[in-house]
Amino acid sequence: MLKLSQTEKHIIENSIRDIKDFPKPGIIFKDITTLLNDKEAYGVLMNHLYQRYKEYGLDYVAGIDARGFIFGAALAQMLGVGFVPIRKKGKLPYTTISEKYSLEYGVDEIEVHIDAFGKDKGARVLVIDDLIATGGTAGAAATLVNQTGANCVECCFVIGLTFLDGIKNLEQKTQVYSVIEV
Rank of each mutant, 00 (worst) to 15 (best):
A73R: 09
F117A: 15
T33R: 10
L45T: 01
R67D: 14
A66I: 06
G80L: 11
L170A: 10
N14D: 08
I167L: 05
S5G: 04
D59Y: 10
E104L: 03
I12P: 00
Q175F: 02
T33A: 05
K119A: 14
K54Y: 10
L75Y: 13
G149P: 06
G57D: 15
M78I: 03
T95E: 13
T148G: 00
G82D: 15
V61K: 12
D120I: 04
C155P: 03
R67K: 12
Y105L: 07
L131R: 00
E171Q: 15
A141Q: 01
Y177L: 02
I132Q: 02
H48D: 11
T143F: 00
Q175Y: 00
Y53P: 03
Q147P: 02
D38V: 06
I97H: 15
K3Y: 09
A140L: 09
T33C: 04
M46P: 01
I86L: 08
P23T: 13
K9T: 08
V145A: 08
H113A: 11
G80H: 10
L170M: 06
V158T: 04
D120C: 00
L58D: 09
D21P: 05
E8Q: 14
R67H: 10
E99S: 12
E154F: 12
E109L: 08
A140Q: 05
N47A: 05
N37P: 07
E171Y: 07
F163P: 08
Y177H: 14
I180S: 11
E104Y: 04
G118A: 12
A41F: 03
G160C: 02
D115R: 00
F71V: 06
N146M: 07
V44I: 13
T96M: 02
I132G: 02
T148I: 07
L35Y: 10
L92Q: 13
G118T: 06
V107P: 06
V107G: 00
I19E: 15
A62G: 02
I32S: 02
E55H: 04
M1W: 02
Q175V: 06
E109D: 12
M46I: 12
Q51L: 14
L126K: 10
A133K: 01
K100H: 08
G118I: 13
I11F: 04
I27T: 09
E109T: 11
E111M: 00
P25Q: 15
M46T: 11
V179I: 08
I167N: 06
Y60D: 01
V81M: 08
I86M: 13
G63K: 01
F69T: 05
G106W: 14
I11G: 04
M46F: 03
V125M: 10
G82R: 14
G139H: 08
N37Q: 14
L45K: 10
G135M: 09
L92F: 11
G122E: 05
T148P: 01
Y101W: 12
K88N: 14
G118M: 11
R87I: 00
I110L: 00
A150K: 11
N37E: 10
L35N: 09
E104R: 10
K100R: 15
L58E: 07
N146S: 14
D120A: 05
I114R: 15
G80Q: 09
G118R: 01
T134H: 07
R87M: 00
A116H: 09
N146V: 14
D38A: 11
K88F: 04
L79A: 06
A62E: 03
V81F: 13
F163H: 13
P93V: 15
H10W: 04
V44A: 04
C155R: 00
V84Y: 13
V176M: 01
V179G: 14
D115T: 15
L35P: 01
C156L: 04
L75F: 13
